[in-house]
Nucleic acid binder design. Structure first.
Length: 666
DNA sequence: TCTACAACTTAGTACCACCTAC
DNA sequence: GTAGGTGGTACTAAGTTGTAGA
């Protein structure tokens, strides 16, 4: 039985992967397979544990100004009251959408220009980097697509767009009319009105697709040496862009590559899927860099960056406007391992831990408000119950040109079904158009409220499909309320809190096995609980059915072999020869049967795990929701090598959590 | 007061390199 | 040596949030 290792008894050892400054309690684990990228140790607080350092940093930084007293003390009933009339129902199945944004962002003064940023907002003093890496210019291949069975000449620009489409011929997008319609709009524009190609139906992109597949195969068939040479060339080209220097410290850049052109691959039924994502040039990109630093170079003579800023209040290095969703931006940020991201992670988990101290009061408050006379109060309290218990996302109103997905605050009446006596069935498309389907038992008061909210609005008018379930408030209103309950609280904190507290609870007991395999399985089970809670789904892996069939056949073969061994063993124990007259050795047969049994058990576990997890994504919660200190502490207590749980990336991302005490509780 | 922007986090998927079993 | 499986990683879409400014 594994026992928790007391820190005093455990002592500490230097762990070279973390650099000299970090000490780990002794646990029996092999040297990790990978090295952490060492951070600059010139910080004056280098003797502090990393976690404390970050906290100290956070504490040292002036806190943002408190909310105006008027806002802070405003009684809930007086806060931005949203009425039924404000949010009109479409009654046609569509959700209420925001008015399309029309103003040009470039005409708006930027935050940093409005006034000198106060000290609380300054994120850096010096910032040096090499900008962004552009994808190579298009190289025409000369393969002709067919129109009405006849090869057609295309200009390089037209050929490029045709190729965007051709490479997607075998994807599900080809079954989507929206995708094809949007592509055709873009393609026909590139072709021009007088082009021979006049409709998509007669287009045959197969020759280009076949060329693409042959290219892929050619690259796959390169020799090891050729592949290595290409890799080295690629790395040499990227070297300058991989790192930035922030206040003198080298930091990894996350996404330094400019997104290449292609077709927009929106998820679910995104109305813009198939639109052409045009090529981005320096003239589209705004660079953020320290004053006096050399400007990043780019390979386009005659072009200049769209703009160069020296905004010390933000952490992005570059951005450009999304060419498809033109109201949005694409940013280049530092990598997850950077100090900025680590700080931000730590603060996120500390905020979630703070919620732990307030959660009882918050629950008491929303429970009281299930009976509130004010409909808005009652709706908010009901919604918050679901956010808390089911870890639902906030859900903001969306434009017509976005996928029609919802969160808690934007649920429509048809997304919930009240099943007496107290079951609520949820069925809606959430983020990424992932379906949330869940039936839960709720408090009778919540059940009554939901029946009312889905039946009629505040004026007693019957609701129709497409109408909002909670029509009296939105996510922003709820966040304002949450800030009254706890400083810094917002809806998303509940997801972090719930994910981490569930993991913490599930990992509290001792694992009933000495084997690392069994311990890891216990961890994965807990991880799975969280993933299910957060509705982290994935597509069933390709070939899953085939794999399961193979596993089934393998298990059947193993069982048959075991049966044979057991039959022989019976004969051997009676001193009889085998069916074929062979002499049998009982001891050997017993060993072989035992090994076979183990093989069967292993295969059965493998089968079950595979089937269980075929639609569950474990990684998302590990990366975003689970306080890594829970995992690190559990590994220390249970003598599980951390690299069995965290891969290299997570190891680096959570470097700040490594020296946590084994007794750490979320 | 409200909307839209700007900045950031969270998310699933495609692809590729590596490992393992045969 | 090879095929198939697996895990890591890059990519980029799609959320959330706080707040400026009309």
């Amino acid at each position: 039985m594994a026992t928790a290792t007391a820190p005093e008894a455990a002592g500490t050892q230097k762990a070279d992967i973390f650099g000299d400054a970090v000490e780990l309690p002794v646990i029996s684990r092999p040297k990790p397979k990978f090295e952490l990228m060492l951070t600059d140790s010139s910080d004056s607080d280098e003797d502090l544990p990393l976690a404390q350092r970050k906290l100290s940093l956070a504490a040292a930084r002036p806190q943002p100004a408190a909310r105006p007293a008027s806002q802070a003390s405003r009684p809930p009933s007086q806060s931005s009251q949203r009425t039924d009339t404000k949010r009109k129902s479409t009654g046609t199945g569509g959700s209420i959408k925001k008015k399309a944004r029309e103003s040009d962002a470039s005409t708006r003064p930027r935050r940093s220009e409005q006034a000198a940023p106060d000290a609380a907002e300054i994120r850096w003093t010096t910032l040096e980097h090499s900008g962004v890496l552009f994808p190579p210019e298009y190289q025409p291949h000369g393969v002709k697509m067919l129109y009405d069975g006849v090869p057609v000449d295309l200009t390089p620009e037209q050929e490029e767009v045709a190729t965007f489409y051709a490479v997607m011929l075998e994807t599900d997008y080809m079954t989507k009319e929206t995708f094809k319609k949007n592509f055709w709009e873009g393609f026909s524009e590139v072709l021009g009105p007088k082009h021979a190609i006049q409709c998509l139906r007669k287009c045959d992109f197969t020759p280009i697709y076949e060329w693409h597949m042959a290219e892929r195969e050619r690259k796959r068939a390169l020799t090891k040496e050729e592949k290595l040479r290409l890799k080295e060339e690629r790395e040499a080209a990227e070297a300058d862009y991989k790192f930035a220097r922030v206040d003198g410290k080298q930091e990894q850049v996350g996404n330094f590559r400019v997104e290449p052109p292609g077709l927009f691959r929106g998820r679910g039924e995104h109305p813009k899927m198939g639109k052409i994502k045009k090529r981005i040039y320096p003239r589209d990109i705004t660079i953020n860099i320290g004053k006096g630093c050399p400007l990043p170079k780019h390979p386009f003579p005659g072009q200049t960056w769209r703009e160069v800023r020296h905004d010390q209040t933000v952490t992005w290095l570059a951005y450009w406007r999304d060419p498809v969703n033109t109201k949005e931006y694409k940013y280049v940020f530092l990598a997850a391992t950077s100090t900025w991201k680590s700080e931000s992670d730590l603060l996120k988990y500390e905020k979630a831990r703070k919620l732990k101290d307030s959660i009882a009061d918050i629950r008491a408050e929303y429970t009281r408000n299930w009976d509130a006379r004010d409909r808005r109060e009652r709706q908010m309290a009901t919604a918050l119950y679901f956010i808390d218990k089911l870890a639902l996302r906030a859900g903001h109103e969306k434009d017509e040109d976005e996928a029609d997905t919802v969160g808690c605050c934007t649920l429509k009446v048809e997304n919930v079904e009240c099943l007496p006596p107290n079951h609520i069935k949820f069925d809606f498309l959430g983020k990424d158009s992932i379906r949330y389907e869940n039936t839960v038992d709720v408090d009778p008061k919540v059940f009554q409220n939901l029946q009312l909210f889905s039946r009629e609005d505040a004026n007693g008018k019957a609701k129709q499909p497409g109408d909002q379930l909670f029509e009296c408030f939105d996510a922003q209103d709820l966040n304002v309320r949450l800030k009254e309950l706890m400083d810094g609280l917002s809806v998303k904190v509940f997801r972090t809190y719930n994910a981490s507290i569930v993991l913490d609870r599930l990992l509290t007991g001792e694992v009933d096995s000495e084997s690392v395999e069994a311990k890891k399985a216990a961890y994965d089970t807990a991880n799975k609980e969280v993933a299910v809670l957060c509705n982290h789904q994935r597509a069933v892996p390709k070939g899953h059915v085939g794999q399961m069939e193979k596993l089934t056949a393998k298990m059947e073969a193993l069982h048959a072999e075991l049966a044979e061994l057991q039959a022989d063993l019976k004969l051997a124990l009676k001193g009889l020869p085998g069916k074929d007259g062979r002499k049998l050795n009982a001891e050997s047969l017993e060993n072989r049967a035992s090994k076979k049994q183990q093989q069967i058990e292993k295969a059965e576990i493998n089968f079950k795990v595979k089937e269980d997890l075929k639609t569950v994504a474990l990684g998302t919660s590990k990366i975003n929701y689970l306080d890594p200190r829970i995992t690190v502490a559990w590994c220390k207590r249970n003598e599980v090598p951390l690299e069995r749980i965290f891969n290299r990336s997570l190891y680096q991302k959570f470097a700040w959590a490594m020296e946590v005490e084994p007794e750490y509780a979320f």
